[in-house]
Design a protein around this nucleic acid. Structure first.
Length: 383
DNA sequence: AATTCTATCAACCGCCAAGTC
DNA sequence: CGACTTGGCGGTTGATAGAAT
């Protein structure tokens, strides 16, 4: 089912992604964003081509991806859209939040197409809803989310790689107490979609990695998830920013601060060896070329304009206001110092960047031009 | 128990469009 | 305007788990 690592091509690794590689990619993209897929593997410390990184992120690692367990509504939508759109999988995927074109394509070829073919092969057979329903039920039975073989309950293992889990599951008592106490409330109320679908709701209760609230005793998930922010940044606005897309807010209130302890233990080798992902993550963070920055020569070749230009390429046009354009023309935008009391400068200073891009190398370079390094917290506060 | 067949899906490949130089 | 780069898309492959023989 999974391709093993195959031969190198031009010195680039191919085949199945390892947990270490996933960790590096997650750590880098969540911190710096995907500012250039081709360059990204170099800075992320990956021996992969940019295309492979992009694919891995888009189809597997990025937040809010639903896996398996297609609802009846989703399958009906796919069938309906395929009738009108044909094999335009990305267009179909656009109508199904959380589903990737690749996964929909696979699901179509492996499940839905056969079902449709069968029903068209037997035209006399009543093509009514109950018939379709049984087909769908058959499919859903095959993709039973409770089937541990198909969908391990520890979905973090799947997201991060496919390490044989040593069972660092959240205890059921803990889970139930968490899900029934108030700590869940802000998470649910603050996620982008205020009306999560039944599938999402079920994913939450079934322990979906991306929607599950932090559990203090779930060091396996949490430490890895927080790996890019270990240390003092745990409680910074950056972590909030990082956690927002995952539906996770106000981490400090849910014990996120406790998480540095087990990771620190793993770093020191104090953690039991039966927690492979935790140790692996510690290694990734320690060996930290996982997030290397451009070299000084590379930085010097990257002018402020080009850095910002590359960033603005990623920004929606409507964000660039006439005010900014005017500021750019006059030059004030680039030369004014960056200080707390100057709200015009601060908002416009930050305007070329979206929230996620505050963590990009381009933004680091942008700040460094003003002698500002690692001022994310300050930037966020001022902004 | 061993072998063969089938289903699954992550990953790769080649092509294309848009943007940049 | 053409060459080049980059991101995105759809078709296809191939290893493996599980089912069937």
């Amino acid at each position: 089912m999974v391709r093993p690592p195959s031969g190198d091509k031009n010195g680039l690794k191919r085949g199945t992604w390892t947990p270490e590689e996933d960790g590096k990619l997650i750590a880098y993209v969540t911190r710096y964003g995907c500012w250039n897929w081709r360059q990204l593997p170099k800075f992320a410390g990956l021996s992969r081509c940019g295309k492979s990184c992009r694919l891995r992120w888009m189809n597997y690692l990025r937040p809010n991806i639903k896996r398996g367990n297609y609802s009846r509504e989703e399958e009906e939508t796919i069938i309906k859209l395929h009738e009108s759109l044909g094999n335009r999988w990305s267009a179909i995927a656009a109508q199904l939040p959380g589903r990737t074109d690749n996964e929909i394509k696979n699901h179509w070829h492996t499940n839905l197409k056969k079902g449709l073919k069968k029903s068209s092969d037997v035209p006399r057979q009543e093509n009514n809803s109950s018939n379709n329903l049984s087909q769908l039920e058959k499919i859903q039975k095959r993709t039973d989310p409770n089937n541990p073989l198909l969908y391990p309950t520890d979905t973090s293992t799947e997201i991060i790689g496919r390490l044989p889990s040593s069972d660092p599951q959240p205890s059921s008592s803990r889970s139930s107490s968490i899900t029934t106490n108030t700590s869940v409330e802000p998470t649910i109320s603050m996620v982008e979609d205020d009306n999560p679908t039944s599938t999402e709701a079920s994913a939450e209760t079934s322990g979906n990695f991306w929607t599950q609230p932090f559990l203090t005793d779930n060091s396996y998930i949490a430490c890895d998830f927080l790996a890019p922010f270990m240390g003092t940044e745990d409680l910074s606005p950056v972590v909030d920013e990082f956690s927002c897309p995952y539906g996770l807010f106000e981490l400090e209130k849910h014990g996120a601060n406790d998480l540095s302890v087990p990771l620190e233990k793993a770093r020191k080798g104090e953690k039991e060896p039966n927690d492979p992902l935790l140790i692996c993550t510690a290694q990734i963070m320690d060996s930290s070329p996982s997030s290397p920055q451009p070299s000084s020569s590379e930085l010097s070749s990257m002018t402020k304009d080009s850095a910002v230009a590359s960033s603005t390429n990623m920004v929606a046009d409507d964000i660039v206001t006439s005010l900014e354009a005017s500021a750019e023309t006059t030059g004030d935008f680039w030369t004014e110092p960056f200080f707390d009391g100057n709200s015009y400068i601060t908002s416009d200073f930050l305007a070329p960047f979206t929230d996620s891009e505050y963590l990009s190398p381009a933004f680091d370079e942008y700040l460094s031009g003003y002698g500002l390094y690692g001022e994310y917290e300050g930037v966020n506060m001022i902004n």
